[in-house]
């Protein structure tokens, strides 16, 4: 039943997002530039550090650059497909416009978090994937690795989304949801570095309790060393667990929603 309907609705989301984005052309351009600045600053920072050291933890320059570009690909997917919707949620909760989303005969988690697509960010797809392929060839990845890469990225992106949806759900409990978006971004920041840089305690917490470190570290460790498949299993469990938690917390949130009166 559902899949076809949801695919159709999603097509509608994409097409309205395009209509919206193309009517603000300067914004469109600035968003692309913003992303590019971000990519440059991330990669240059790591590169500059490696001008002065041989390794960071167990990884050399190429390996860490590969990790960084892996995370940029995830970030790019995030920017393109979900990030705008988080900011809309905090606004819509404040103004009560969420009412209309809740009225629609579509699952509200879907129509809240996938409502907005950023077409401008989509333009950067060649940059991020180009970087990933460039550093992947330097590592170098095997044929099997290249085959595994896309599904691993999908897995990572799914986990990141679920964790962020859960965090965003807490907006139902606060008067001003904007701050939650900043919290969400900080938690994403933590995942942008490999897990081994963290101390034992923080690494455990950020892998098990709030599994953000699994997002990048689990798949990249696995690509470099196939004996490290366990964290990957942990990632699947984390995805399933997060999904259950999200459904539960979202239902609670909706019960809590008191729809800012007009």
């Amino acid at each position: 039943m559902g899949i076809k309907h949801y695919a159709q609705v999603y097509r509608g989301f994409v097409s309205t997002s395009f209509t919206e984005a193309t009517s603000f052309r300067l914004n469109f351009l600035l968003l692309i530039i913003m992303d590019l600045f971000f990519y440059v600053s991330v990669l240059a920072t790591v590169s500059f550090i490696f001008d002065h050291v041989e390794t960071i933890g167990p990884w050399n320059r190429t390996q860490l650059m590969f990790f960084m570009s892996f995370m940029l690909v995830i970030d790019h997917l995030h920017m393109t497909f979900v990030s705008e919707s988080f900011w809309m949620l905090s606004t819509h909760l404040k103004t009560g416009e969420l009412d209309f989303t809740l009225l629609k005969p579509v699952n509200s988690i879907f129509s809240v978090f996938f409502r907005h697509v950023r077409p401008s960010s989509l333009c950067n797809i060649f940059v991020t994937w180009g970087l990933l392929i460039y550093y992947g060839r330097q590592v170098p990845l095997t044929t099997l690795d290249w085959v595994l890469l896309p599904p691993l990225i999908l897995l990572s992106f799914t986990l990141l989304c679920l964790i962020e949806f859960i965090i965003a759900s807490s907006m139902f409990w606060v008067t001003e949801g904007l701050g939650i978006n900043f919290l969400r971004m900080q938690i994403q920041q933590l995942s942008r570095w490999p897990d081994y840089i963290y101390g034992i305690l923080s690494r455990k917490i950020l892998t098990i309790a709030l599994p953000v470190l699994l997002i990048g570290s689990a798949p990249v460790h696995f690509l470099f060393d196939k004996s490290r498949y366990l964290p990957l299993g942990g990632m699947v469990i984390a995805i399933l667990g997060s999904f259950v938690v999200l459904r539960w917390i979202w239902a609670r949130g909706l019960r809590r929603y008191d729809s800012a009166s007009s």
Binding site: T95, E97, K104
Partner: peptide
């Protein structure tokens, strides 16, 4: 007092999306 139409797109685009929502 509130609008369900998306502010930055023409009404027709909103209608087309609603068409999909409600099949």
């Amino acid at each position: 007092q509130k609008s369900q139409l998306w502010w930055d797109i023409p009404a027709m685009d909103s209608f087309l999306l609603l068409k999909r929502y409600y099949e």
